[in-house]
Amino acid sequence: MLLVFTIYHCCVTGLSVKSIGGQKRKLRSEKEIKWLFAEWQVKYDKSYDTSMEESRRIKIFKDNLRYITEHNRPENNHSFTLGLNQFADLTTEEFASIYLNSHLNVEPSSHASDRYMPKEGEQLPNFVDWRRAGAVSPVEYQGNCGSCWAFSAVGAIEGINQIVTGNLMTLSKQNLVDCERLSNGCFGGRTSSAFQYVQKSGIDTESHYPYQGVRQPCNPIKESVVYIDNYEVIRSRNEISLQKAVSSQPISVSIKSNSTDFIFHKKGVFSGRCGQKLDHGVLVVGYGREDGKDYWLIKNSWSTFWSENGYGKIERNINAPFGKCGIAMNPSYPVIDKPYRLYGQSSKTIQKMPLAGA
């Protein structure tokens, strides 16, 4: 069950509750909660097989709603707000089993690089947003599939490919879920394995190899339209190095995300609880400062209903070795030295040839 009762304990059918400060606060009635739940079901197209299952989901929904309402009270003075989204009928345990990735670990040191090691006296931009440069494809939804690793890796490849070629291509996450065999498809994977696959075999477009949200046999007629030359891991694993990297290209990172605060993040700079271990892959597409707080701008794969149209701001420059939610613990990125023109119609006949004059 979500961490509701750390704030206060009560029966939701009551009219008021005494808070820690001693003041009575009015609660929503059972009728109002059921109305909100029905409205939420319509918005997110939710239905259940039995009345018993629906009753269980209403109870979880009430717990989550109560937590969100308490968090958002002005007197709590949080830097961010929470809101109901498509996950409101899940416990954190259920959420983790469906959407998160137990295979995310620190990437191999054999690919560690000093490419983005800050130099003494070096000035970095105060604000970066790769969306404005046209290097970020639209937010998508991974569905009931633990494929965040593929979304993170593909986003980084799309970004560097656009930076090098000037052309933003939306690439296939399903291609990786089906064909990258060092990972486990919808049961988790690693961005390093994804990068290795694209370096060797290339990757198809989203339109030609669309996302299904389940692992299927690798499509034998896939077309490899983008390759990478290598991938690297930021050796120093600190926020300054990550800032320099993000000022040059979108970066794949792993974070600790299994907390009620993060799951229901709606707006503002996230500074809440994160969880205990790396469990989710996202893409850092920028950074900046808002309301006196430095932030990282991340692109998530939980649809546009999460946070601010699918993008969230996470507190930056905090007093912790690896940053908020471990964001600087596992950063990696693809390398493209020069663009390629591709010949052939399938992965079996592809040859990659440098563009003339490149």
Rank of each mutant, 00 (worst) to 15 (best):
G134Q: 06
M353S: 08
Y48N: 04
I314F: 10
K266D: 04
A153L: 14
C148M: 05
Y231G: 12
D63G: 15
K26F: 08
D204F: 14
K266T: 01
F87V: 08
I314R: 00
Q345M: 10
E223H: 11
L27I: 03
P125M: 03
N309A: 05
N300E: 05
G121C: 11
R25I: 04
Q249P: 09
F37T: 02
K267E: 15
I221H: 14
W296A: 03
Q196A: 15
V106M: 12
V233G: 11
Q86P: 03
P125W: 10
I318S: 13
Q162T: 14
G159S: 15
R56K: 15
I234K: 07
L3S: 14
G155Y: 04
S47D: 14
F195M: 14
T349M: 06
M52L: 14
I314Y: 00
P138Q: 00
L84K: 01
E39Y: 03
S346N: 15
N76F: 02
D178Q: 07
F127R: 09
A133M: 05
V282K: 10
T50R: 10
Y8M: 07
Y231T: 03
D294C: 03
I58N: 06
K31D: 02
Y227N: 09
N105M: 04
K34H: 07
A328S: 13
P220H: 13
K31P: 03
H71V: 06
V233C: 07
N309V: 01
P125D: 04
Y231V: 07
V246A: 04
F37Y: 12
G312M: 06
H78Y: 00
I318Q: 08
L242G: 05
S29N: 10
S224G: 14
R131D: 01
C10M: 06
P334S: 06
G185Q: 08
V106T: 11
Q212P: 06
Y44H: 08
R237W: 01
Q243N: 06
A356V: 08
I318E: 10
E93I: 06
H208E: 12
R131W: 02
G286R: 05
L100V: 10
L90Y: 13
I203Q: 02
S109E: 09
D49R: 09
T260P: 05
Y311W: 04
W130V: 04
R66N: 06
P74D: 07
Q162Y: 14
M169R: 12
P250Y: 08
E120F: 12
K222C: 08
T170S: 13
R57S: 05
S79D: 01
D294H: 06
S147F: 05
V12Y: 12
S252R: 11
N144I: 05
H111D: 00
P108W: 02
I20N: 05
Y141S: 08
T50H: 09
L65G: 04
T92K: 09
H280E: 08
V164K: 15
H9Q: 09
D291M: 02
G268W: 00
S254E: 15
L124M: 03
S236I: 07
R28T: 06
L242D: 08
T349S: 15
G288D: 07
I350F: 12
S152V: 10
